[in-house]
């Protein structure tokens, strides 16, 4: 049984190259059919994400088939590239690592599992898979599930935006009732706001010195623009305030906020300061019901999350090795029975 993988990923190709090779989801089945006409493949699955384009195949001669796959990809993209190739055990291990998120740009991310499932489903629907790749991919999905449930590889947030979301969820629980006020329309603040929007916050108000920029960002994020001079009026309603203005001094001090707190009752206030220099007075964190995090603390938590994930890699690799042995034993048994059946 000659299973192989050929492809390129964020490890060996920049985004400008990867985007040339990317295959649109709608064109996946058609591309797979063309590939099978071009290359001598018994079975094949084509995986295309923003970080990788890979072909998993079963062929009588893996070297010839892998070369043909690489030629096909280069011809489709209209550009040459360096491809990696993994044969049999290494190819199987590679798939198990990919589907578990160990080979991802952000280690432990789980989106890849859905993408691999989609790629496999497309190949299965097209009749491009058989006993070997069916078994391989089903086992890969089991590996991914075990890695997620038995290790801490997905635990902890690893980006500033996801850390802000995690902190907000530990304050408010469900974010669907939260109102977000974004001060400034810079990229850092917009990224945090976007992360919170993805968790379904109730409202987003954006205040910026240049109103047109606020309106533009509000249109993009599905929020409401506000004149910067009026942002204090929106403070009472806000549950989360993200600040990323270019102000030289403090935008909000403890002395400004303290008199407003009694009217908030039990409602906590989460302040996210991603501005440099900082917009929020550090003394705000000392007020009851007010939680302040700045860029430094958010990045420190993200680093902690990443370190936690990296410390789990060894555990994940052990699980993967167990499954690899199981798959290889199955492949050997299958190879032996095929040989016996041969005339």
């Amino acid at each position: 049984m000659n299973i192989f993988c050929v492809g390129l990923s964020h490890h060996n190709a920049g985004v400008s190259l990867r985007e040339r090779f990317a295959v649109d989801a709608a064109a996946l089945a058609e591309t797979l059919a063309a590939l099978r006409e071009h290359a001598p493949l018994n079975e094949a699955v084509l995986l295309s994400t923003c970080n990788r384009v890979e072909i998993y195949g079963l062929a009588g001669d893996a070297s010839v088939a892998a070369r043909a796959c690489a030629e096909f990809l280069q011809r489709s993209a209209g550009v040459e590239a360096e491809f990696y190739r993994r044969d049999m055990a290494e190819g199987v291990r590679h798939l198990f690592r990919v589907v578990s998120g160990l080979d991802s740009m952000v280690v432990g991310e789980t989106e890849i599992l859905g993408q691999v499932k989609d790629a496999y489903a497309a190949a299965l629907a097209r009749g491009a898979t058989g006993a070997a790749l069916n078994r391989l991919f089903q086992q890969a999905f089991r590996v991914a599930k075990q890695v997620r449930t038995k290790t801490g590889i997905t635990r902890g947030s690893v980006s500033v935006g996801s850390v802000a979301v995690e902190l907000a969820e530990k304050i408010f629980g469900d974010l669907s009732a939260c109102r977000v006020l974004l001060l400034g329309a810079g990229d850092a603040g917009a990224r945090v706001a976007r992360s919170l929007q993805s968790r379904g916050v109730r409202a987003l108000v954006i205040a910026n010195r240049t109103f047109d920029r606020a309106a533009e960002l509000a249109a993009e994020l599905g929020g409401m623009a506000l004149h910067y001079d009026h942002w204090c009026g929106a403070l009472d309603d806000a549950d989360i305030i993200i600040s990323c203005t270019a102000a030289r001094g403090r935008v909000l001090s403890a002395a400004d906020l303290a008199p407003m707190l009694p009217a908030r009752g039990d409602r906590p206030l989460f302040l996210v300061d991603v501005a440099v220099p900082r917009d929020f007075d550090p003394a705000l964190n000392g007020l009851e019901g007010v939680y302040l995090h700045n860029l430094d603390s958010l990045q420190a938590i993200a680093r902690q999350g990443m370190a936690g994930r990296e410390s789990e890699i060894e555990h994940c690799e052990r699980l993967i090795s167990e499954h690899l042995d199981e798959f290889l034993a199955w492949a050997r048994r299958r190879g032996a029975s095929a040989a016996e059946a041969a005339p």
Partner: peptide, 24 residues
């Protein structure tokens, strides 16, 4: 949990405890 949220980098128990809104 409140103490964890006030810290610059919360400890591991932060991930295990429920949100303060739920506890309230």
């Amino acid at each position: 949990q409140e103490r964890q949220l006030k810290m610059r980098v919360p400890g591991s128990i932060f991930h295990l405890l429920p949100p303060i809104a739920t506890l309230t």
